[in-house]
């Protein structure tokens, strides 16, 4: 029943650009989303490596040299940590989205499955 001359004047507040800094919960969410950034760097390295491999030996050596730099190793280590963190959050959320078995069992199952895939890949690649 709001008529033009009535006393209502609802106040609409806007979300500020730093809304995600205001709560611990939002910060953790943004951290989860931000895990994609170091992964992008890792993927860049991977593409660069593949390109170098097919281009020339010289190119490959320069790639290898690039990869040996401290900051590159650090960023790749960060990418590993980030993907592990992302996996952890993903595995924890999964049982809530598809409640197929007790949550703890599902989380453990996912880690075991990931481990199995890694071992299989390593075995296929001939690492023993």
């Amino acid at each position: 029943m709001s008529t033009p001359d009535n006393a209502r004047k609802p106040y609409h507040s806007r979300m500020t650009r730093d809304w995600w800094l205001q709560q611990r919960y939002y910060r953790l969410y943004m951290l989860r989303e931000a895990t994609v950034l170091p992964l992008l760097f890792f993927l860049g390295c991977l593409l660069y490596g593949l390109y170098s491999l097919q281009h020339s030996e010289m190119q490959w050596l320069s790639f290898a040299q690039f990869m040996q730099q401290g900051w590159v190793i650090a960023l790749n280590a960060l990418a590993l940590l980030a993907s592990l963190y992302h996996a952890k959050t993903f595995f924890a959320l999964f049982p809530r989205v598809m409640p197929l078995a007790p949550p703890l069992l599902m989380v453990a199952g996912q880690w075991l499955a990931s481990l199995a895939v890694i071992i299989t890949l390593l075995w296929l690649a001939g690492v023993s």
């Binding site: 029943m1 709001s2 008529t3 009535n6 006393a7 209502r8």
Partner: peptide, 9 residues
């Protein structure tokens, strides 16, 4: 009494 506007109806 309309509570959100204070109007009578």
């Amino acid at each position: 009494l309309v509570l959100n506007s204070g109007d009578l109806v």
